[in-house]
Design a protein around this nucleic acid. Structure first.
Lengths: 98, 98
DNA sequence: AATACTGGTTTGTATTGCAAACTAGATTGT
DNA sequence: ACAATCTAGTTTGCAATACAAACCAGTATT
């Protein structure tokens, strides 16, 4: 197995999925934002975004904080340290592959 | 939607899957090889490789030619022109995203 | 006091990805 | 010769997705 194929085979599947890749790329840039911002920026639907976030949270890559902006609920999102490392590793993997 | 997110969202899913990405990367380098070479090089199992190849063929990205090496069957694989273009486009997409 | 809107979550389904089981034919052993 | 084994794959069955439609609790509107 060549280094290229090895790098591809080792890509983190949680991050690799395009929907989640968008989320992680976005969060890695802004440090914190809310559900609706990610929703609009990625052009996903709510159900999809919700479940991808749940997956990322379960992987320990994002923190989800439910709070309020006045009376309306707001879900704040941040990449955890593990999330940042995973994304960095993912990008290194890509670079190694291509 | 930023250019980065757009690029991610437009990645070709057929090629994006790591198993198939390995196959396509390999075929793009060698022009032609057989099933067993890809099998050993990628370290997949046969069932998996077979179905990923079927998907790539159905997408028009690989040509599958069944022939014989003496008396033993041999499956030859090549990337089609469309496959080369798709892979090139995929790499451009990645470059645009990261 | 209905109706509609916000900000999400849950549910149902169709598609995948995966490996175990199978197949057809060639080879080897007895 | 004929059973057992090997080779080169394909098919099948299942578990895990990804996706959107339907739902829900609370708020604002008419």
């Amino acid at each position: 197995m060549t280094a290229q194929l090895l790098a591809i085979s080792e890509l983190d599947r949680v991050i690799h999925e395009p929907g989640r890749l968008m989320i992680v790329a976005l969060l890695s840039a802004v440090k914190e934002c809310d559900f609706l911002y990610v929703l609009h920026e990625t052009e996903m639907n709510k159900g999809n975004l919700s479940s991808h976030l749940a997956r990322l949270e379960e992987a320990g890559y994002v923190e989800i904080e439910k709070t309020y902006r006045g009376k309306v609920p707001q879900t704040l999102l941040r990449l955890t340290r593990a999330g940042h490392k995973a994304f960095e590793g993912y990008r290194k993997g890509l670079k190694a592959a291509f």
